[in-house]
Amino acid sequence: MNTALLYSLVGIGLFSLGLYALIVHAHLLRKILAINVMGSGVFLLLIALAKRTATPLPDAVPHAMVITGIVVTVAATALALTLMVRVAMENHRAELSDQSQE
């Protein structure tokens, strides 16, 4: 098994684990962690497959994409965490509430 395939499979595994946790768990912090793990999975796939060049140097375009992705993810995470704290104050717990108030 070669390196590119191994790490892309790990990437797919991380994506699936994250997706499972995102759906199953109610606590918002855990959902946010799950999104981050999913993101890491996608990034791992992008970079691992970039190693399939004939030269020792990998393809740099996915590297740049992932750096962009990491920055976008931290921005989204910061917003999500702030929103979570506010939701926790309103709902008295860090979970989404289903019933709307009158």
């Binding site: 070669n2 590119a4 395939l5 892309s8 499979l9 797919i12 595994g13 994506f15 699936s16 796939l45 497959l49 970039a50 399939r52 060049t53 004939a54 030269t55 140097l57 990998p58 393809d59 740099a60 375009v61 996915p62």
Partner: peptide
């Protein structure tokens, strides 16, 4: 099943690809 399907897809990619290098 989704993960297995995606694994199969990745496996089906050619072993060498230059990308945009």
């Amino acid at each position: 099943l989704v993960a297995a399907g995606l694994g199969y897809v990745v496996h089906s990619l050619p072993e060498s690809a230059p990308g945009l290098s």
